[in-house]
Structure formats: C-alpha cells, structure tokens
Design a protein around this nucleic acid. Structure first.
Length: 860
RNA sequence: GCGAAAGUGGCGGAACUGGCAGACGCGCUGGACUUAGGAUCCAGUAGCCGAAAGGCUGUGGGGGUUCAAAUCCCCCCUUUCGCACCA
C-alpha cells in the first residue's frame, strides 16, 4: 500500500493514553514528599461525591487543576495534587432504603468506577494519598476533632427548633435550606424541636468576616456572598419592662434588638416573634389562652412556607398587654407578628412605624399609632406628617420629638442614645450576626458517629481518645424512619459509661457530612498518618492550599465551614495560618441543552464515551478551550471534534518533521544566519511561550493559552508550506520525502518551535505530548522536563507595524524599526501617503505617539 | 426589594494598563487534491455601499470625559446569579 507511511503515523489516542497512564503509574510520577529546597504548590480541586458516574462537568473542574499542577511542576514547583472522595451522605443511604444495597457497598463501587473514569483522563493525581471520608481511618479524626471542640465548648448540645426535611427524614443546617425547601430534594422544610449538637461557628463570626478582606485572590462574588451570610449589624439591645396587668411592678423585661435606637422615641408598639418564650406566658395569662395559642401556632407553621411564596401578608394579633418604652415612659401595646424572626436578635423588636417600612405597613393595617421622630433635611424636603404618611422614612435626618436628643443628627443620636441607655442600665450596644451556630446532628446512618456517651449520672461523657474510632456498626435494614438508624443497634447503643462504668447509651446521631469536607485538605498533606489527624510540620510545609477550584455552589457552605475549621486547628496549635485557601477559582458548569447535567434529565455526557471516540486528550483540550474556566458553557460535540482535528494537525506536523528535527543540531541557530522567515518563526515561538506561560499562570485564562498554541501550529504549517524545500506537510508525509535537503537553520528553528509546542501542550494533552516527545528522541518523559523559557530578545521584532489615526479614524499603517524614537515615528506617520491624503490642506494640531502602539494625528 | 456580575459576528469567545474591535475555534462559502469526501490542505466569512481601491456604520440603548472608549463616568434596558421581612 502506498499509504503505509501515513497509516503508521496515524494518531490513535486510546493506545497512547493507556501506555502513558501505565508509565506514570509505574513510576509514581506524581507522588511527592516535602522538599524544603523547592517552592511548594498545593493544587486542589474539590473532592468528589461518589455519585456513580463522573460527567464532563467534573472533567472540566479536574482539568483546570491538572493544567495548573502540570505547569507548576514543569516550572520547578514541588506540586501536591491529591484526590479523594466525600463518601458519606444521604444519597447512598436513600438508595439503600430504596433498593436494599448497603451504603458502603454502593459507595465503594461508585468510587471504583469514578476512579477509573478519572484515571482514563490522565490527571496527574498523587493517587497514593487518595482518601474516602467513609473509612474509619479518616472519620476517626472527625471524632477526635469533635472531642477537642467539645472540651473547648466549641461543640455543644442544646434543645432547639431545627429545620426538618420530612422527605429525607433529617435535620438540615440553615445553610442547607434553600428557598424554604431542602437543598437536596426541595421538600418544604418544617420545624421540629430536638436535642441537637452544634458547632459554635459564631465564636469566629467577627474574624470570619473581617478576614474576608485578606482573601484577595478569591472571586468577589463569593466574598460578597460570605459577607452577606455572616451578616454583621451593629446595634443595641434595649429592655422594655413588661407592665403587669394587676398594676404591680413585674420583674419581666422584653429585650429588643435594634439598629436604629435613634428612632426609639417613635417606638409606639412592641412586636414578638411567634416563637418568643413570652408568647406562651402572655397567652396563659390572657382572657382567652386557647385563641392566642392557636394564632401563634398558625404563624409558626406559616413561617417557612411563606418564604417560598415570597411576601406573605404581614399579620399579627394583640396580646392585650403593654410594655414601657424606657425612653418615652409611655405604655406601648405588645403584639405578636408573623414577620418577626424568632432566631434573629432577641426575637422581639420595637416597632417604629414612621421610620421602618414593615412596621409602617403593620401599623397602618392595625391602626396602631405612628409618630415621626426623624425629619429629612434635604433641599426641598417637606416635613413629614404622621397623619398623611404613605411610606416609612428610613433615611438619616434631624431627630425631633425625642426629649433631650431632639435636634441631634440621627447618626449622632445613634451613639448618644446608646450611651444613655447604657448609663441608665436599660440596655447595651451589641453586634448581631445573621450567622448562626452550625447544627451538625443528623438522624441518619451513613455518617460519622458522634463520639459521646450519655450517662444518667455523669451526663455527656466523651469517648476516650484511645477508644476512637467509634466505628459505624454494620446494619442490614434501612427503613428511612425518623429516628437515627443507629438507635436500633443495641450492641452499639448500650455501653458502660467510660467515667463511672454504669450502663449508659451512646449518642446515635451522626455528623453532617460537611464536617468531613471541612478539613480533608489537611489530611491530604499527611494522608496515611495513623497517630494524628495530620502532622503539623507537614501541613506547615504544604499549607495553605495555593490553588483551589470547584463549583460556586460551595461559596457559602463548604467554604465558610473550612475557614472555620482552619481557625479551630490554628487555635489547637496544629496549623499556622488562618485562611486555608489562598486562591479560589469557581468554575462554571457544563450544560447540555441549556440544563445542568443530571441522570434524571438524561442529558449526561459521559467522559468515557468521548474518550472512546476522540481520546482523553481531545476531551481535555476541548473543555479547556471552549470558554474561560469561570464561565458556564454549553456542551457541543462539534467543538470536541474541532479539538480532535487540531490534535491530528499537531500530530501530523510533528510526525512529518520528527526525523529531521531529532537529528538536528541546536547550534545551527547560533551559528547560522537566519532568513527573514526563520527569524519570524522564532519570534512567533518565543512570543507564544510568553503568552501561554502568562495565560496559564497567573492569569488562568486557559482558553486563550490554547488559542495561542493553535496560532503557533497555523504558523508552522504556513512556514512548512512556504519556506521549506519539502513543502506542504501532507505531501511530505504521504510521499515520505527525504529531509536531507533542508537548510540546517530551517530545521533548527522548526525544532525549537516543535519542542516548545509539545512542552506547552503537555499540561493540556499530556499523553500525546509524551508520545511526541519520545518520538523526538527524548527520554525521561515530559513530566520531568522544564517548562520552555522565553527569550525577550528573540521575541522582539526588528520592525513593527504602527497604525496611524487621523482624527480618531484609522488611516494608515507604517512600518518602522522597533527601537525607533518618537520623532522618527511622527515624521514617518505624517509622510505616509495614505495618511497624507487626510492631512492635506489641513492644519496638524497635535500628534500623539503611543509608544509601540499607535500614532494619533489631530487635524483641523 | 437589596446586592453582585455580565451584555461584542450565525455560535463559543478574544482584545492584559483606554491605543488597529472580532484573535482562536465552531459553522458556513469557494478552491485544490480525489472514483468519492462527512478526510486533508489553501482561501474567504461583522453590516452597508462599491467591479476594485476604498468609504461609511458597528461592542444592549442614550449621554459624557478623551487625540483615542468594548474598556472610564452618569442615566436607562435586558439577562444571570446570590440574599430575601435580619429590625
């Protein structure tokens, strides 16, 4: 066959990919140890929930990290790039309830499958450090940390109203309630009173907020979301004494939280949340307890569902009782209102209808008094009149009708009146956070057992460290009932109290899986440690994570919890930094038919299908090229074909020149005198090195890095066609043309270009790059090869083309020496015939020379 | 409602500090090579006028700053995302 030679050199990705993956595995190419002589780079992608199958959205995230890791490695960094599994969680348990397969069985099977998928992509993971959070050698450290937090009062137990998902039959953290529904199944969330374990994240609320300013390499969007979530507001707590109906002085106060104490003279009633503790007492003391209780009950139930429909009508009822406004000394009515939140502030507010829109609506509806205490002073502002007010005025202004404070500017009154309250002992300034303590109890099986024993005599007794881990018992039946499944395992529950030896009961709740994911990045540094969670010295070397990428859906949950845990570990003396992730990249999702890929929608693109068709390298290249990493993209098969075509183009070109280039001497460039075309090709090569290097790091514009490589390949084809004796690449291959006739200089510049191309391609398409590199006669593999270096001398053009504008319009282009001075450029621009046409007969008023960029001529 | 980000060819996108708008790719059109081409190579591809040279218009809309604006400022429109009675 005449086409034998072409067949021999055809690009067959599958065989190549298997070969190199095997070599990397055999040589443990991506395992690392601490090496203080080299700068470290900790590159991490958010570990995976083993749902069963990876889709191309996963692929995109892992590729971003792999390009960074591989590039950094070539640039001399000691790169830690690990991977693992967020293996506990509800779906596995739900599946068990449905089909009877034990969560451990399905989880391990899913991990095995997904691991295979990822390995077929050739990601440069240090697989030796792989971890799965469902393994006792991982979760025992969750338990260890829980106990340290318990000792420090950072983990505590209290009865509380919790978010309850009736479908998942479990408690949800506030962060897991989305639009009033369960974040996972969207079922309407209801309330339930349970004894729950909490982590005191609010202890770090101020620091978690203020340190956001130090996260300069995080997306602004994520920082804003975290700021809002923590929600700090400065204000005051003020006590309104409850007026006893019998007239005798009661000792009860209603404490309200306000950020607008400057309006307190306008507080004409007090509002309680339906959940407020006083509501039950006032009901009991009222004439008709049953009716008040029923109304409060109705509000409590309404609360959650109202959020979904958006704005529930503001409703309330009077308790028939009064409180004393401590500033005015007036008796003000106490109402219960559905829009007052029990869990924020004190669960009670002073209502100032003239200056708060919600209070205004409420007062209008129920004909409660409205009193203006702030007057606007803007130009042309009409004085407010309570009788004709149509909306609350909530801007700053002049304080009026407010005793000694009248006449103050409202923002000053904020301070003055708070001080007055403190002096009089009726309140104090406080900072209130929206962030609440993290409820970590889950009444589920597939999670970390909480290492606490309940003893009738001793109370809450921690499991001694030397008895960790408390292993999950193997249970065989999954019913999905509301109680913790662990409660049905007597040999697990019934234990002697570690302190007094009396019969006691184990805690049967398990931990929220977000506990697992809040510190796994430390475990990766020292994944096999069997005596501690990690060696602090090792984490001191690797930490913090330098580059972290994952979905924006973790902007608050995982990323706040991890920042919290970093501080807990810091205060335990185990890490020396506060922020665990120096740089964060939130990658955009990959959509198919405009929707997120999911099994139920049937629009999942399986990477294995793509690998079978085009190879892993084409898939990798495509997902990097299609758009900037942060952007959402729509999957198209045509785009993947384009990436594959490009790789074939590279492959053919390198094959065509392989032998000639492998034999070439590197001296030819230095010794010989280059033709213009050869110099231009060198320039393109070095300019491409510069662009690709910067595009990858620090810019992480991986799509433009790829396009720069495509440009270089286009240039190489043109050069081969026009400036070599062999001519067109295809013919050269088909006819098996000899290479002997080529100028040594030509081969030398081609060699430089091809080598740089293959090296720079290697983070994107590592298998093909390795294969080509080997074909070029190189040994040792690209993974140990240094990144090509850019020579600004070579990249600099001798001549540059400078566009010339006349009155802002492009009129000509001049070619001048690159080191030309301004006067010469100006003269050349004015002399250019195309420019002269537009300046003829006019006065040149101004000539601006933007060095190396453009000449701008202003004429009149 | 509040907050954030973004609007560029038929499509994905590029344009780094204000300096040639549309790189690179997809798609489309034409040509070469071919028994054939859905392979490959070459060329063209924002709109309008023009045979061409060239000219005019153009980065959601309107205004402004500047020699020069996709980029900076003001107003408006649209989309996406986040928060959503937080007192």
């Amino acid at each position: 066959m005449g086409y034998n030679r072409l067949d021999m050199s055809e690009y067959r990705p599958q065989a190549i990919e298997e070969k190199w993956q095997q070599r990397w595995r055999d040589s443990r190419a991506f395992e690392v140890t601490e090496d203080r002589a080299r700068p470290k780079f900790y590159c991490l992608e958010m570990f995976a929930y083993p749902s069963g199958h990876a889709h191309v959205g996963h692929v995109r995230n892992y590729m971003i990290g792999d390009v960074m890791a591989r590039t950094k490695r070539m640039r001399g960094f000691n790169v830690l790039h690990p991977f693992g599994w967020d293996a506990f969680g509800l779906p596995a348990e739900n599946a068990a309830i449905k089909n009877g397969i034990h969560p451990e069985t399905s989880t391990l099977a899913n991990i095995a499958h997904m691991k295979g998928q990822l390995q077929r992509l050739g990601i440069s993971y240090a697989w030796e450090r792989e971890l799965a959070t469902c393994m006792p050698d991982y979760y025992r450290w969750n338990q260890w940390l829980f106990l340290r937090m318990f000792e420090r009062d950072l983990a505590y137990r209290r009865r509380s109203t919790v978010n309850w998902c009736s479908s998942c039959q479990t408690v949800l953290a506030n962060e897991q309630v989305v639009d009033g529904g369960c974040w996972r199944c969207h079922t309407l969330v209801t309330n339930r009173d349970l004894e729950q374990w909490f982590f005191r994240i609010t202890h770090y609320a101020d620091e978690l907020l203020s340190a956001i300013d130090t996260l300069t390499d995080w997306p602004e969007k994520v920082l804003t979301m975290q700021r809002n979530w923590i929600g700090r507001s400065e204000g005051a707590r003020i006590r309104f004494p409850l007026v006893d109906p019998s007239g005798t002085g009661g000792s009860t106060d209603i404490e309200v939280f306000t950020t607008r104490i400057d309006t307190i003279y306008g507080a004409t009633f007090v509002l309680l949340a339906p959940e407020h503790a006083l509501v039950e007492r006032l009901a009991a003391e009222s004439a008709d307890p049953a009716s008040l209780r029923a109304s409060a009950d109705r509000f409590r139930r309404q609360e959650r569902s109202a959020r979904i429909t958006g704005d529930a009508e503001k409703e309330g009822f009077s308790t028939g009782r009064f409180a004393l406004n401590p500033f005015t000394g007036e008796q003000v009515p106490i109402w219960v209102a559905n829009f007052v939140l029990g869990e924020y502030g004190t669960g009670a507010v002073m209502a100032v209808p003239a200056h708060d829109q919600r209070d205004f609506e409420f007062a209008t509806k129920y004909r409660l008094p409205i009193r203006v205490v702030i007057q606007p002073e803007a130009d042309g502002a009409q004085p407010l009149d309570a009788a004709v007010l149509t909306a609350a005025y909530s801007e700053p202004g002049r304080v009026v009708n407010s005793g000694d404070c009248s006449g103050l500017w409202s923002t000053d009154a904020l301070v003055t009146m708070a001080e007055m309250a403190e002096r009089r002992g009726i309140g104090q300034r406080t900072v209130q956070f929206r962030l609440k303590d993290w409820g970590v109890s889950r009444q589920r099986y597939w999670g970390t057992p909480i290492p606490i024993i309940h003893c009738a005599a001793c109370g809450l007794v921690p499991v001694p460290d030397d008895q960790l881990p408390v292993e999950l018992p193997r249970i065989t039946e999954f019913t999905g009932r509301g109680d913790s499944p662990l409660a049905s395992v007597p040999e697990f529950v019934n234990v002697p109290c570690p302190r007094c030896g009396a019969p006691a009961r184990r805690e049967t709740d398990t931990m929220d899986t977000f506990v697992d994911s809040s510190w796994y990045f430390y475990r990766f540094c020292d994944a096999k440690n069997s005596t501690q969670a990690f060696d602090p010295a090792t984490v001191a070397y690797w930490g913090p994570v330098d580059f972290y990428s994952g979905g924006v859906e973790h902007a608050i949950l995982h990323l706040i919890y991890s920042r919290f845990f970093a501080r807990v570990f810091r205060d335990l003396g185990m890490v020396n930094h506060g922020e665990p992730f120096a740089r964060l990249l939130t990658q955009g999702m990959v959509l198919k038919d405009g929707a997120v890929m999911s099994k139920s929608k049937g629009n999942v693109v399986d990477p294995d299908d793509m690998i079978r068709k085009y190879g892993a390298d084409a898939l990798r290249l495509y997902v990097m090229f299609v758009a900037p990493p942060e952007k959402e993209v729509e999957w198209t098969d045509a785009g993947l074909e384009g990436a594959f075509r490009f790789l074939m183009r590279v492959w053919r070109f390198v094959q065509a020149w392989r032998e000639a280039v492998a034999r070439a001497s590197g001296d030819a460039i230095a010794a010989g005198s280059l033709s213009d075309a050869e110099r231009a090709l060198r320039r393109k090569t070095h300019d491409t090195i510069r662009r690709v290097t910067q595009d990858i790091d620090p810019r992480v514009h991986l799509n433009t890095a790829v396009s720069a490589l495509m440009e270089l390949v286009n240039e190489l084809y043109l050069f081969s066609e026009q400036h070599t004796t062999a001519g067109a690449t295809t013919r050269r291959m088909e006819e098996g043309l000899a290479v002997a006739g080529e100028r040594p200089e030509t081969v030398a510049v081609l060699r430089e270009a091809i080598e740089a191309l293959v090296l720079m391609l290697s983070p994107f398409t590592p298998h093909m790059a390795e294969e080509l590199w080997e074909g070029l006669g190189k040994s040792g593999g690209i993974v140990v090869e240094p990144w090509p270096s850019f020579d600004p001398e070579v990249a600099r053009a001798d001549e540059v083309v400078v566009p010339v504008q006349v009155n802002g319009k492009l009129r000509g282009r001049i070619t001048v020496p690159a080191d030309c001075d301004e006067d010469t450029i100006r003269a050349a621009a004015l002399a250019d015939p195309a420019v002269a046409v537009h300046t003829a007969g006019r006065t040149v008023k101004k000539v601006i020379v933007a060095k190396g960029k453009l000449v701008s001529i202003v004429v009149q």
